[in-house]
């Protein structure tokens, strides 16, 4: 008659969510943009994506083995890191670049710090920036050899053209952009960053699933919009239209999927507004006045570094808080 029961500390119920569900939901939210990339850029994009994801997952397995940790290869986080990196690579990226990037993302971006939860920087962005500064030519080769866009567009991005014109006006002109094409995603760029529409749809799904909050993307995008509008308002012949800023480069994928990474963004909403604002400001500064045409990756990484500080100074106001009396004891 004596039965034994399971004992744990309270509470005894939970909301059913898990790291596994969160990670795979983000992967799912990225699928429309991924498939669009495959459609636009063809088999090379498929190849880049598969190799990068595989490299990330295998690196995760190897790192777990070496560190003697429980296997986490299927929890979705390695797949997500690999996928995010792939979506931030040009479709022309060679196979070895993908392997190097995927491995660097997991090993240098995450596992050296102690695995998921301990990495201060977004692992996919660590790898992307590593590749960008190490292999700039490969990382900015926008030639499209297959898919819907094969040979159809110039091999320069909107931001690239705008930057060239800004630095050396004699070499070019402000690009003419078709906003509908930008919104739907008919443009050159990294595999997963091109469709504003599908990225917004994915972001909306994550918001609905309560995996991301509105604060970071809104602060990020709004800040970029405000700053670029100001610049464009002063010198419309020199700077790109702010609407083009919103729908080009990696702003959408960065604001919705990279800056919102839970591990590397602040804990509470006040901190997340500051974080999003910082990302937007740095992005706009780099795009308008920096040496690179695009600044999303750099600005998110720089703000990642500020997260511990932001968390410390945005301690939530506790219930029943009474300000200590001023003056001496």
């Amino acid at each position: 008659m004596s039965r034994t029961f399971f004992i744990t500390s309270s509470p005894h119920v939970n909301d059913g969510d898990s790291i596994f569900r969160i990670m795979w939901s983000v992967v799912g939210a990225l699928l429309p943009a991924t498939l669009w990339g495959f459609y636009l850029f063809g088999m090379p994009a498929v190849r880049v994506t598969l190799i990068t994801v595989a490299a990330a997952v295998i690196s995760e397995a190897v790192a777990n083995k070496m560190r003697g940790r429980a296997d986490t290869t299927l929890d979705g986080s390695a797949v997500l890191t690999g996928l995010l990196l792939a979506l931030n690579l040009p479709p022309s990226a060679p196979w070895w670049l993908c392997i190097f990037g995927g491995a660097a993302a997991i090993l240098l971006g995450k596992q050296v710090f102690g695995g998921l939860g301990h990495n201060p920087f977004n692992p996919a962005l660590v790898a992307r920036v590593l590749l960008l500064v190490s292999f700039p030519a490969f990382m900015t080769n926008w030639a499209v050899e297959a898919g819907y866009l094969a040979d159809a567009v110039s091999s320069a991005t909107v931001l690239g053209e705008a930057k060239t014109f800004l630095m050396t006006p004699a070499l070019g002109a402000l690009p003419n952009v078709n906003y509908l094409d930008l919104f739907i995603g008919f443009r050159a760029g990294c595999i997963g960053e091109v469709s504003t529409l599908l990225l917004l749809a994915g972001g909306a799904y994550l918001y609905w699933r309560r995996i991301i909050t509105i604060d970071i993307p809104l602060a990020f995008i709004a800040t970029v919009f405000v700053v670029t509008t100001a610049a464009w308002g002063f010198a419309p012949d020199k700077y790109l239209n702010p609407m083009a800023h919103l729908m080009t480069g990696g702003l959408m994928i960065g604001a919705l999927f990279m800056a919102t990474d839970m591990v590397t963004s602040p804990l509470n909403t006040k901190g997340r507004w500051i974080f999003g604002f910082g990302c937007g400001l740095l992005t706009a500064i780099i795009r308008l006045w920096g040496g690179y045409p695009e600044g999303v990756s750099f600005s998110i990484l720089l703000m990642n570094a500020c997260v511990p500080l932001i968390d410390r100074y945005t301690k939530p106001r506790k219930f029943g808080f009474v300000a200590p009396a001023k003056g001496g004891e």
């Binding site: 790291i19 969160i22 998921l116 939860g117 839970m262 804990l267 509470n268 219930f319």
Partner: peptide, 19 residues
């Protein structure tokens, strides 16, 4: 359990405004 992924959900859920 896994390591904390800093999602901040506990901070939003805390009725006492703690972290």
């Amino acid at each position: 359990h896994r390591d904390c992924i800093s999602c901040g959900r506990c901070v939003s859920a805390c009725p006492m405004g703690l972290s």
